[in-house]
Amino acid sequence: MGEAAASGATSHEEPTGLVGLAKATVARPEFVSFVALIVLMVLTSFMNENFFTVDNLLNITRQVSTTGIIAVGMTFVILTGGIDLSVGAIVALASTLMAGMIANMGFPFWLASLVAILGGACTGAVSGFFIARFALPPIIVTLAMMEIPRGLGLIYTNGYPLPIDREFGFIGREYVLGLPIPTLIMLIVFAAAYFVLNRLPIGRYVYAVGGNEDAAILSGIRTARIKLMVYAVSGFTAAIAGMIQTSRLLSGQPNSAIGVELDAIAAVVLGGTAITGGRGHIVGTLIGALLLGVLNNSLNMIGLSPYSQRVVKGVILLIAVLIGYLRKRNSR
């Protein structure tokens, strides 16, 4: 649960004093990623003076926002021990539907967004229904749901981007309180997820389902509902990401967000959430997403080719997971 996860793998006492607090922080599984994030930022700022500028840093957070928001829903799913491969397809479906509602049906932006986001939640709930009701493996169900929404988006747009007017670009392009709006939305989504996971009973149940499903059932938790919910949440956050993307690109993109599910999973895992469920923290996911974003940005800045970047990203993911495993083993 919240405090179980927060207390990390080695320290179980309530942190007292600075030393205790420091120890508890170091023991947290996402600490590795946090250190990596800092080291990466320091190194890059030496190699390119343009890195450590407000503009660039804000730019990174905007670039990260899509993956970050999707990773929030993915955290819910992975905490229950599941996986959601359908999020990229839901981004695309939400994006095309929203653009269609604006361009072809004359919906106002807010209404189109609302419908698209709720539609995303429902699409996620479809996966959740099959997973919860028939106990089908999440990886198979969401693999199928990777195809269906994507296909529907392609049918609807005939495979072409569906443009919308420039005036609808404010969400993707404007700033509020000095922050890019996508960054702001991402922070709100993370804050809401933090609240749900740590302060609502349902958040406890999410951890419980992943921690021990049989025990959760016998403890009177309606695990099927929880499972349905987490996939709906995942579809919901994916559609929010789709909304931002549509506004930023000024078009509904049926071919967008291919492979984004893997980035989202990577962010969750880098954030220290156990892929088997039951353990993890939403703040870790934010760190994981930022790490991926900074990595992209810094590899660009030092002029590494996109091909090499993939190799480096893969290696870093592998090392991070290995360190996490070793730390967990040694703390036993």
């Binding site: 179980a4 302060r199 009973p201 419980a208 025990a215 403890s219 938790i221």
Partner: peptide, 27 residues
């Protein structure tokens, strides 16, 4: 029976946590 990775507290309150809330439903 147990949620092994969780704390003693979490294990004890898991069936009861919905009652340990304020008016807004917060734990």
């Amino acid at each position: 029976g147990l949620f092994l990775p969780f704390s003693i507290r979490s294990n004890i309150v898991i069936s009861t946590v919905a009652r340990l809330t304020n008016k807004l439903g917060m734990v």
